[in-house]
Lab assay of single mutants.
Amino acid sequence: EALLLQRRRVTVRKADAGGLGISIKGGRENKMPILISKIFKGLAADQTEALFVGDAILSVNGEDLSSATHDEAVQVLKKTGKEVVLEVKYMKD
């Protein structure tokens, strides 16, 4: 459990079709971090076996998301290339 509370760096390699394969919720306007709300089976994020629903995305390719709005986070995630480095931390409810 202590492991979950540490920052983790996960590299996601996207397939030619399909994006990261995650849905996010939260954002500055909700006074919440950007959280992974869904991981789609078989897509890139799922294949890492290292990302979990409830993980907060702290940064994407080094771009800090700690004070991002939901829309800003969506845009940052959309413009990523084939390889995406996510810094995440599991957030307890």
Results as ranks from 00 to 15, higher is better:
I39P: 01
K38A: 12
K78N: 08
D55L: 01
G54W: 04
G21N: 02
V10Y: 01
D16G: 13
S23Y: 07
L4R: 10
S67N: 14
V60T: 02
T69I: 01
T69E: 05
R13F: 13
S37I: 06
F52C: 09
N61H: 03
I39L: 08
M32C: 06
A45F: 05
D16T: 09
R9Q: 14
G27S: 01
A50M: 12
T69G: 06
K38L: 03
T48D: 05
G27V: 03
V88E: 00
Q47T: 12
G21F: 04
V60C: 13
E63C: 13
Q47R: 14
E49W: 04
A50W: 03
K92G: 15
G62D: 11
S23E: 12
D71L: 11
E87Q: 08
G18V: 11
S23D: 14
L3T: 05
N61C: 05
A45Q: 04
A15F: 13
L3N: 14
K14L: 11
G54P: 00
E63R: 15
K38E: 14
K38Y: 13
L5S: 13
G54L: 01
V88M: 00
E1V: 06
D64V: 06
S23C: 13
D46Q: 07
S37T: 13
E72I: 05
E63M: 15
K38D: 14
D46A: 14
I57W: 02
K89E: 14
I36G: 04
L4M: 14
G18R: 11
D93H: 11
A17G: 10
V12Y: 05
G62W: 01
V60Y: 02
G21K: 04
F40D: 15
R9I: 12
N61I: 01
A50E: 09
L3H: 08
I36T: 03
T48E: 06
I39K: 04
A50P: 07
I39M: 05
V12Q: 00
T11M: 12
A56E: 07
L65T: 09
R8C: 01
R13M: 13
R9A: 09
I22M: 09
L51T: 01
A45P: 04
K25Y: 13
E1A: 07
Q47F: 07
I24H: 01
G62C: 05
T11H: 08
L58A: 03
M91E: 08
A56S: 08
L77F: 06
I39G: 04
M91H: 09
G26S: 01
K92E: 15
A50Y: 05
V12F: 05
L77S: 06
L4A: 07
G18E: 10
R8T: 00
Y90R: 10
G27D: 05
A68P: 00
F40Y: 15
T69F: 06
G27F: 00
V12G: 00
G21E: 04
Y90E: 07
R13P: 08
S67A: 13
V88P: 01
L35V: 13
D16Q: 14
Q47K: 14
R8A: 02
I36H: 02
A68W: 00
I24T: 07
R13Q: 12
K14T: 11
I57E: 00
T11V: 13
V88Q: 03
D71K: 11
A15W: 09
G27M: 01
F40A: 12
E87V: 09
L58S: 04
G18M: 13
A68L: 11
K89Y: 10
M91V: 08
D16V: 12
F52D: 05
K92W: 11
L58T: 05
S67G: 14
L43S: 10
Y90F: 14
L4D: 14
V53R: 04
T69N: 07
L3M: 11
E72V: 07
Y90P: 06
A45Y: 05
M32T: 14
S67T: 15
I39C: 02
E49K: 12
E72S: 06
V10Q: 02
A17W: 11
K38I: 04
I57N: 01
A17M: 14
I22F: 13
R7I: 11
L58R: 01
R7C: 04
D64R: 05
K92M: 15
V12M: 08
S59N: 08
S66M: 09
D71R: 11
T48N: 07
L58I: 10
F52H: 15
D46L: 01
A56P: 00
D16N: 10
A68Y: 11
D64I: 04
K89T: 10
V53H: 04
E72C: 05
K89W: 07
A56N: 06
G54R: 01
K38C: 10
A45E: 05
K89V: 11
R8E: 00
I24R: 02
L58F: 12
M91L: 10
E87R: 03
H70E: 12
S23Q: 14
Y90T: 11
F40E: 12
D93T: 09
A17D: 15
T69R: 07
V10D: 05
G26I: 01
I24K: 04
D93S: 10
A2I: 15
V76F: 08
K38N: 13
L4H: 12
K89D: 07
V10N: 04
A45G: 08
T80P: 10
D46E: 09
V84G: 13
I22A: 01
R7H: 09
S23V: 10
D64K: 05
G26L: 00
D93L: 08
G27Q: 00
I36N: 00
I39S: 03
K92F: 12
G26Y: 03
A50D: 09
R9E: 07
E1P: 06
K14Y: 08
H70S: 11
M91N: 09
I22K: 00
V12C: 07
G54H: 06
Q47D: 09
L51C: 02
K41N: 15
E63G: 06
T80I: 13
S67W: 10
A68N: 04
D55S: 00
K25I: 12
D64Q: 06
V60R: 00
D93A: 09
R9V: 14
G54I: 03
L3K: 10
